[in-house]
Amino acid sequence: MDKQINPIYENPIYESKEFKKGRLHRGNFTKKCVLIKRNWQLYLFILPALAYFIIFCYIPMYGVQIAFKNYNGGAGITSSPWAEPIYKYFKMFFEGAWFTTTLKNTISLSLYSFAVGSILPVVLALMLNEADNIYFKKAIQNATYIPHFISTVVLVGMLNIMFSRTGLVNQLIALFGKEPILFLMKDKAFKHLYVWSGIWQGTGWGSIIYFAALSNVSVELYEAAIIDGASRFQKVIHINIPALMPTFIIMLILGAGSIMNVGYEKVLLMQTDLNLKASEVISTYVYKVGIIHSQFSLSSAVGLFNNVINLILLVTVNRIARSVSSNSLW
């Protein structure tokens, strides 16, 4: 089958440097106008989403100033005085005695979850895809996807009971004749408990999108592979994995952009006086400070800091993805 160049999709002019840089070249400009006119309906498609983002995301952005102002809840945002000096709340945060600890914990918890939590759903989807018995497959799918619905409060309650001195895990350990381990008292155990309970909750759910992608692989490819004498394992490596790659890379990039977003609820519930050094993250820290004296400006400043770090990471990872593969966010 001769591949003819599709004038709409594959016109080499799209690849040209000038087009990419958007330099106003007369030929390019008219081409763009033609495309806009021809595809006017696509602009309607994107309109609702655009309106949504403008109204609910861009307009409220003027509130970012709170981070730089001495925001008094009584006066408005615009009429509150500027902070003296303007970076006062950032300084407060950076000079706090727990700043480095919280930063370190946030990043390490996040990277740990991210590393394990990106790969496992893919592996699970691949494994499930290979199971032949359809009832077995459905049973496992349902079982792995249900944990996603257990609320955080219940999950931590269950963890406390199962890993307590007389709980299930220690009873299993006792079967092997060993002494009970006080998991909840060790601050080294905190991050493992946190990450793996999160994995338990999220893997099944996360594998859904990969499963959907796998269902789209054409049977012809498999048949061709069988003819070529490929084993099961080889089929997985050469057909399934490439099929999942685009989605996987996108998820990786998006994940990189949320590294600083470790939520406070689960960590706060799992914190005890003992594991503070390992468990205090930026969000719980700011939550505690805010609860005693409502400190809007401080939490806003910290939020902004988080966002900037996330953005830098996102751009970096996207650039890497773009040069290594053909998939990237932009």
């Binding site: 945060f93 706090g96 005695a97 727990w98 005890t272 006086d273 505690k288 004296h293 400190q295």
Partner: peptide, 21 residues
């Protein structure tokens, strides 16, 4: 209030943790 809130949280965190340890 503004002067004290962050350092007081820091202090409390540290003391509680050290006391437990």
């Amino acid at each position: 209030a503004e002067q004290v809130s962050l350092p007081a949280t820091d202090l409390d965190n540290y003391v509680k943790m050290m006391e437990a340890k």
